[in-house]
Nucleic acid binder design. Structure first.
Lengths: 347, 347
DNA sequence: AGCGTCAAGGCAATCGTTTGCCGAACGTTT
DNA sequence: AAACGTTCGGCAAACGATTGCCTTGACGCT
């Protein structure tokens, strides 16, 4: 007789409980528990017998029951304030990586920049008794702490909390900007312009300031005033138009984002300026699809988002285990050189 | 006396339990439970008193205890087989959306295309007693079912299971390709080429076949043989080179991806062919950063990944509630017209 | 023979909620 | 006044695992 549709789709293979395992192995549930968790003092033979019984029955512990007893869920919540985006993903991967290795699962919450949703998610996370929470999101200013007096530790990743005592892991954008400028200087450029995003944007400010400072350290000044605009290719193209029309003498451009840089590359190309011969180019973000689609391929600054996610998760684990860390950790950036800043063979 | 660092970071605000709430409200725990869950028959006044007590103590139920009792966790697992990527994210957002509204949380698992990790995650999901599982990942062939005889329902999103009885939600790529071709026909193009990804790639095949068929329906044939290559801008540029050097007479190109299309647009531009006047262009994926960075902005086919994620979640919820659905659901695509297929004013 | 020691494993309390069942109190009906 | 129905709320048994404590029996020592 063929299975009904119902049966086919929902095999009610009611999972075995530890008492069934114990019964099969001929021991008490307590002993079975000890056997499976490597605790207590048991004859190796007994231990093995229990393990085989568990295997045979396809036993998987009931996490709810265990959590109830032990008070730990081996679960952390991850709240992204903006919609899960380009930046959140590497962060998540990194965190998931560090946690997964420690057998901890991640509950994903997308608050969509809505404080109401955020509170709601926080509540459900607490009700699920997560062991800790990672807060992340689009970078801008420091954000207000998600809550105070939480019964679980919280770590902020990428964004930082406005309370300096909270634990945050952020990229050191100044470091990134300095590395970009130094790299351009190292390949012999001296007339460097900086084209970036909106002036009111925190990242734009920080990067611009660090770039100017790095030039200053060599006794140089930017080739033009910092050109603030948007984080888009279109702005990059437009900025090049402005640069060329003013006849500015520029041999390198450091861009506030890869998108801007790509626009710059295109516009330069169309104006018959060779990259990197006439103008060298450095972007920011090291966003694969942008740096690789760019002609020539784009040298860029990598904020190591995965690393930030990983660090945040590690700090969270430490806090969960009773070794809390306070304050901000700034993670250094990495310059990834590509053709847009290649040193050309003398010929 | 100032707080110790320990105190500051880990306010051990031991969460209140329902018995404390009950005590404060002067009722038994059973009654308190009924009051908070809107069950049983209680005087409205009592109910209110309990609710206020809960409020006052900042009570949040212990999900573990509840799950243990009710057997439901209001949690589903989401396994992505490839690393969380560009496609997985909208799917996740969609799923999270549909589930979040139903108060269900998502446990995120990134199996990184590694069967071992996949098994491991599956096991932890089962141990966490998730109510259901969504499997997703990079699209290619149908994948082997993640397991059989699971105690919980499974829905495949974007990818499909090779067992036709499993429930899968996939994009109707043929529909997308047909819509692209019909759109080009509708704006008066007749000599249409198709440039796409690797020939061995399932999506490339399906889209190409549907495109040819849609042309055939109008008694037309493609302007050239389908041009298989890679899913990259570089291939798009290269393909245009080939097209132009053979002197093929083409007034539109349908591309298998937005990246290819963008490469095509650039190469055409550099060859002084106007888009859309000389050659109209349609991409596939409707990937914001590609379609918007393209000059002119790119008409593209949107597979509605969020919608697929949402449908998958809804089907999963239905299955959890005892109304399982079998088989594949194909979700239609949407054409998003932009400047690359604009009809020009006669002038 | 008597005693102490130790290993092995059973017992039962416990975690926090939910829920079916039962009892008390009160009002209504005859 | 007795019988009955309702409403409200308490009681206690689950759910499944963990763990400290206790019992049992074997063994070694004096």
């Amino acid at each position: 007789m063929p299975e009904t549709l119902e049966e086919t789709l929902r095999k009610t293979v009611r999972a075995a409980t530890i008492s069934e395992v114990a019964a099969l192995a001929g021991v008490s549930t307590g002993t079975a528990s000890k056997a499976l968790n490597g605790r207590g003092s048991l004859r190796p033979e007994t231990r093995l017998r229990v393990q085989q019984a568990a295997e045979q029955l396809g036993f998987v512990v009931n996490g709810a029951a265990r959590s109830l007893q032990t008070g730990r869920t081996y679960t952390v919540g991850m709240i992204t304030t903006d919609s899960i985006g380009r930046f959140s993903i590497p962060l998540m991967i990194g965190a998931e990586d560090a946690l997964g290795a420690g057998q901890v699962s991640v509950l994903l919450c997308d608050a969509r920049d809505d404080p109401i949703r955020e509170k709601y998610y926080l509540r459900t996370l607490l009700s699920r008794k997560v062991d800790g929470i990672i807060v992340t999101g689009r970078r801008n200013q420091a954000r207000t702490p998600i809550a105070t007096d939480l019964p679980v530790p919280v770590v902020y990743a990428f964004i930082s909390s406005s309370d300096p005592r909270d634990c945050s892991v952020v990229p050191d954008e100044s470091d990134g900007a300095r590395k970009a400028v130094r790299h351009l200087l190292a390949i012999g450029r001296r007339r460097i312009a900086h084209i970036t995003g909106p002036e009111h944007h925190h990242s734009a400010q920080v990067r611009a300031a660090a770039a100017i400072e790095a030039l200053g350290a060599e006794g140089l000044r930017p080739a033009t005033d910092t050109m603030y605009g948007e984080w888009s290719e279109a702005w990059g193209r437009q900025a090049v138009g402005m640069l060329l029309s003013t006849g500015a003498d520029v041999d390198a451009v450091f861009c506030g984002s890869d998108q801007i840089a790509r626009g710059v590359a295109e516009a330069l190309r169309e104006a018959d300026r060779d990259v990197p011969r006439d103008v060298a180019l450095v972007g920011f973000d090291n966003w694969d699809v942008m740096v690789e689609g760019c002609r020539p391929q784009l040298t860029s600054i990598d904020m190591d988002l995965e690393g930030i996610g990983r660090s945040a998760a590690e700090l969270l684990l430490a806090a969960i285990n009773g070794e809390p860390v306070q304050g901000q950790r700034a993670q250094l950036c990495r310059l990834v050189p590509r053709a847009s800043t290649a040193v050309l063979a003398e010929s």
